[in-house]
């Protein structure tokens, strides 16, 4: 039996999602068509709307429908602090803390020298231009504590130091409410190396 070409095209299109292989793509396609046609319509409409209306905020680089995102446009935020994060999910996490009133810059990735992702691919010059607006007093680096996140933080810090900006890095160590007994040794080792006066 020949698979109709529109079905084939749908399966092929679904495969662009991360972690979706031919089998799962086929399962998704049959599910949408057979059990949930209205859901398929909604998905199609939401996708095409998102793709046509969403763009990157000209100041913080996160996704927005306008030129400036609500946060960057808000007068309630402190424009003298700029927090640099890797991805929008990291920004959401920072916001959940309710401990930060400044603004953000989302890199949309991280340096990964062995994957060929360098400063040009990350367009770090845009981040630099944002940080050097004359209003930002402190740049807070909140990239991940992986080697790639750490390399990104180092690189960004070097660029910002050269421009005379104050740079800080979020602290790492034993989690809040954490007990040493149940914390992994690597974390405790680094917490010990990076201990501070008390």
């Amino acid at each position: 039996m020949r698979v109709p070409s529109s079905l084939e095209a749908l399966v092929e299109a679904l495969r662009c999602l991360p972690g979706v292989g031919p089998k799962s793509a086929q399962r998704m396609a049959y599910h949408l068509l057979q059990h949930d046609p209205p859901g398929a319509e909604r998905l199609a409409a939401a996708l095409s709307r998102a793709v046509t209306t969403l763009r990157h905020c000209t100041r913080c680089n996160t996704f927005t429908e306008d030129e400036l995102c609500d946060r960057c446009a808000s007068s309630q935020r402190d424009p003298s602090q700029l927090c640099v994060v890797e991805m929008p999910v990291d920004l959401n996490m920072m916001e959940q803390t309710q401990a930060y009133r400044g603004l953000y810059y989302v890199l949309m990735g991280r340096l990964s020298p062995l994957d060929g992702i360098g400063p040009k691919e990350l367009r770090l010059e845009r981040m630099l231009a944002r940080a050097a607006d004359g209003i930002v007093r402190e740049v807070i680096l909140a990239t991940n504590f992986t080697n790639e996140g750490e390399a990104t933080a180092h690189y960004v810090a070097e660029l910002l130091h050269a421009r005379g900006l104050k740079v800080s890095r979020i602290a790492r160590g034993v989690p809040v409410g954490g007990e040493l007994e149940f914390t992994d040794a690597g974390t405790i080792a680094q917490a010990l190396i990076e201990r501070r006066d008390y």
Binding site: N147, E150, H154, Y155, A185, G186, A189, I193
Partner: peptide
């Protein structure tokens, strides 16, 4: 994790 080696940072990481 075996330990005994601090994480590489800065230039040494690159």
């Amino acid at each position: 994790w075996c330990g005994g080696l601090p994480l590489l940072q800065g230039k040494s990481l690159l």
